[in-house]
């Protein structure tokens, strides 16, 4: 029994409490009883990883995994956008070298991840991608939490992205996924710029949708399969890549989370009843966060104030 190798003998203090002639029997009892444990339910390595993933998701959703962003990089961003992209690229590249399985972009930054097969992944602030150490040799499978734009090179292995309960399967194409684990209903939206992908819930491949050039679709936990593909306003969906914001009937809660990630601040919404009301707004590059907050407050009849690490919106 390999499982009990560490524990081959009873505690020496225990043995002393039996008479000498009983020692052999006790030792045998100890050894044989170890085999009785081997028949209890086993846990496979993939079950461990799934369970760990669930724990991560729960901690992320409850905010316990939130890490403070890089303040210095945030300062540089306000002055030199290109420099930040370079710094972030170096950061992500070194992450790739030292921790080959995870790439994440801090709050306040946007970065591009270049994969060994030539595929590139532009990642929005706060996004995390996990991928196989053996990419691209045995598979091109990865997990996304956040928002990213993928430019996928053709390869013999399919490129598969798992995002909060959905799977996006492609060969060679360019597309955007938005899938935040803290989004209500775990909504995942996919928009294809060119090429073709399959989009389906992780537990049901037969519910797939085929998305082609300029089409988008979405899925949330209440849906059996992703929505019928529609023609996408690709320019709006991809605004984040140019540091712009486009909010199309987006809930206030979701907008505030976008702002938190992009500007690396914490925003407290003291008026929960407006959280799920929606807004539509467009902003060009380098807009100041307070401009956006002012607009939200004007429309919703609210006020905001600065706090130690961000803002508070109140009635």
């Amino acid at each position: 029994m390999s499982q009990q190798n560490h524990n081959n003998h009873p505690d020496s203090g225990i043995l002393k409490q039996f008479s000498e002639k009983e020692h052999t029997a006790i030792q045998e009892v100890w050894e044989h009883s170890g085999d009785a444990a081997g028949n209890l339910p086993g846990v496979s390595p993939s079950e461990i990883e799934e369970a760990l993933n669930d724990v991560h998701t729960r901690l992320e959703m409850s905010g316990d995994f939130r890490s403070p962003g890089d303040k210095i990089a945030g300062w540089i961003q306000r002055h030199h956008r290109i420099l930040v992209a370079a710094v972030a690229l170096i950061a992500v590249t070194s992450l790739f070298l030292f921790v080959p399985k995870t790439a994440s972009v801090p709050y306040g930054e946007i970065a591009t991840l270049e994969m060994p097969d030539g595929s590139t992944i532009e990642m929005n602030s706060g996004t995390t991608i996990l991928y196989s150490r053996l990419y691209p040799y045995t598979n091109r499978h990865m997990e996304l939490n956040g928002e990213a734009f993928f430019t996928v090179e053709e390869h013999s292995n399919p490129f598969i992205v798992e995002a909060n309960g959905t799977i996006i399967e492609v060969t060679g194409t360019r597309f955007n996924i938005r899938s935040w684990s803290d989004e209500p209903g775990l909504k995942t939206s996919v928009t294809v710029s060119d090429g073709q992908i399959l989009f389906y819930p992780a537990q049901d491949r037969s519910g797939y949708r085929v998305l082609q050039d300029d089409e988008s679709s979405f899925w949330n936990i209440e849906m059996g399969r992703p929505a019928e593909p529609e023609t996408a306003a690709a320019d709006d969906v991809l605004a984040w890549r140019e540091h712009r914001f486009v909010f199309q009937n987006q809930t206030v809660l979701s907008i505030l989370r976008d702002l938190e990630r992009r500007y690396d601040v914490e925003i407290e919404l003291a008026v929960p009843e407006v959280a799920f009301s929606t807004l539509t707004a467009y902003y060009s590059q380098n807009v100041h966060i307070e401009t956006i907050l002012e607009d939200i407050c004007t429309v919703k009849g609210l006020r905001f104030t600065e706090t130690a690490n961000g803002y508070r919106i109140f009635d």
Binding site: M1, S2, H32, D35, A36, G38, N39, L40
Partner: peptide, 22 residues
């Protein structure tokens, strides 16, 4: 799960060691 022989699936279930651990 308890019925599955854990260490060696090809093992004869009547094997004395399996009986003993049961």
């Amino acid at each position: 799960l308890g019925r599955q022989p854990s260490h060696n699936p090809s093992e004869n279930p009547e094997d004395s060691s399996t009986v003993l651990s049961a």
